[in-house]
Design a protein around this nucleic acid. Sequence first.
DNA 1: TAAAATTTTTAGAGTTGCCTAAAAATGATT
DNA 2: AATCATTTTTAGGCAACTCTAAAAATTTTA
Lengths: 219, 219
Amino acid sequence: MISLAEENYLKAIYSLNQIQQGGASTNAVAEKLDTKASSVTDMLKKLSEKKLVNYTKYQPASLTNRGMAIAIDVIRKHRLWEFFLVEKLKFKWDEVHEIAEQLEHIRSSALVDRLDSFLEYPKFDPHGDPIPDKEGRINKIHDTVLSALPIGEEAHIVGVKEHSNSFLQYLDAVKLVLGTRVKLINRFEFDQSAIVQIAGKENITISFDISKNLYIKFI
Amino acid sequence: MISLAEENYLKAIYSLNQIQQGGASTNAVAEKLDTKASSVTDMLKKLSEKKLVNYTKYQPASLTNRGMAIAIDVIRKHRLWEFFLVEKLKFKWDEVHEIAEQLEHIRSSALVDRLDSFLEYPKFDPHGDPIPDKEGRINKIHDTVLSALPIGEEAHIVGVKEHSNSFLQYLDAVKLVLGTRVKLINRFEFDQSAIVQIAGKENITISFDISKNLYIKFI
DNA sequence: TAAAATTTTTAGAGTTGCCTAAAAATGATT
DNA sequence: AATCATTTTTAGGCAACTCTAAAAATTTTA
Ligand SMILES: [Mn+2]
Ligand SMILES: [Mn+2]
Ligand SMILES: [Mn+2]
Ligand SMILES: [Mn+2]
C-alpha cells in the first residue's frame, strides 16, 4: 500500500528527473515538496526498501519501473481531474491545481477509467500538459517555446512551462491562452522582449520571461 | 484544522445520534468506525477539547453546533459525490459508497458549490438519502417503511435503510429500485413476509428483513 | 445489594511522517 | 593537499492515530 506522502514523493522525483538539471537530489526534492532535507532522506530510504526508488547515499534518486508506473498513474489522475474541473465545473485554469493535488490521491481504478470516458479521453490538461493513458503511455512533452519563434513566423500557444497562478492570470489578462494564434512581429536584442500579434489582431509586447515559458507549435 | 480521522468520527457520532438507539456510546462508535474502544476514548477527548463534541466520561457523546455543521458538510459532500458517480459516471448504486468515503474529505468549498450546480442541485442521493444544502439544511429523513404498508395499498420506493452491497444487489435483481411503484398484495402473519406487485406487473414474495429496510411514500 | 458481566478508560507502546541540531561526506577553492 | 562551503545523513524527538492489556466504572443478574 502506497501512502499519500509516498505518492507525492514519487511524483516529485518523477518531475525532477524530467527537467534535466541535476535530477532528484535530496535538496531538490525537499524544495519541491516544501519539506526538510532530513525528511527526504528518511523517505528515500523507505521508498528504496519498497523498490520504488533507486537510491544510494549522497546520490540523486530515480524511479524504478514500479515507482514510475505509480507516479504516472498519479499524474494521470491529477491532469484528468484538472480537465474535469475546467471543462465541466467551469473553474479557471489558475484555480484547479490545488484541488487536483487532493483529488489525485483518490484510489479507484474504476473511477479513473469512467472519468476518462466521461471526459471523452482528453489528451491534454488545461495547461497543455499531456494526460497519460490507462496503460501509462504519455505524449512527449512540448519542447518549443515562444522565445524560439523566428521573427515573422506564426504559431499556436499549446502549453505553459511555468504553472504559477500569477503567470496564468497574466496570460488570461493579455489573452495569451491555450490555442491562441500568435505571430512574432519583432524581437529586441537588448532584453529579448518581443512584440507579438495576438489572434491576427492587436500587438502586445512581452518580456523574455513570458515568451520562454510558453510552449508553441508552428503553424 | 479538522483531520480526516476527526471528520470520520464526527460523521459517525452524527449518524449514531440520528438512529435512536443509545446514541454514540464508545463501543457504538468503535463498531461503526471499525476501530477499538480505547482509540475512540482518545478521540472523544480531543474532539471535546476542540468543542466539536459534548463528552463526559462514561456517557454517550453528542455533537456541538460546530461539530454538527462539520458533520453535515461532510455528509453533503458524500451524497453529492455519490449522485455524481451514479448520474454522470454511470456507476451502480452499490459501487459508489466506498469511493464517496474518500471524496467526502476533499477540501474546497468552491468545488462543492460548483459540483452542486453542475448536478443541478439534487435533493436525494442514489440511496434516497437527503442531500443537505449549502446552508446545512437537510430534508427530514424518510420514516415510513414497506413493512408498514397496509394490504391493498400502493406506494413508491423512495429510499433504503440498509446500505450493504448485498442488499442493494438483491434489490437490483428483483427490480425494487428507487422510484418503483409497489402494491401490497398480501402479508403472512407467521413471518411477516409479503407478496408485492412491482410496477403494476409481476408479483414477488419478500421477507420481513427486506420490507422493513425499504422506505416508501404512499401514493 | 453483592457478585458477575459488560463497558469504558488508562497506561504504555508502535507506526508514519515530520522537525531541529549536529555529524559526516562531498565538492569547490586556494 | 588542506581548507572552506555546501549537501546530505544521522540522532533524537514530537504529533497524530492506532493498538493491547490492565484497571476502573457502570450495569445487569441473582
Ligand atoms: Mn496541476
Ligand atoms: Mn496541469
Ligand atoms: Mn454512502
Ligand atoms: Mn448514499
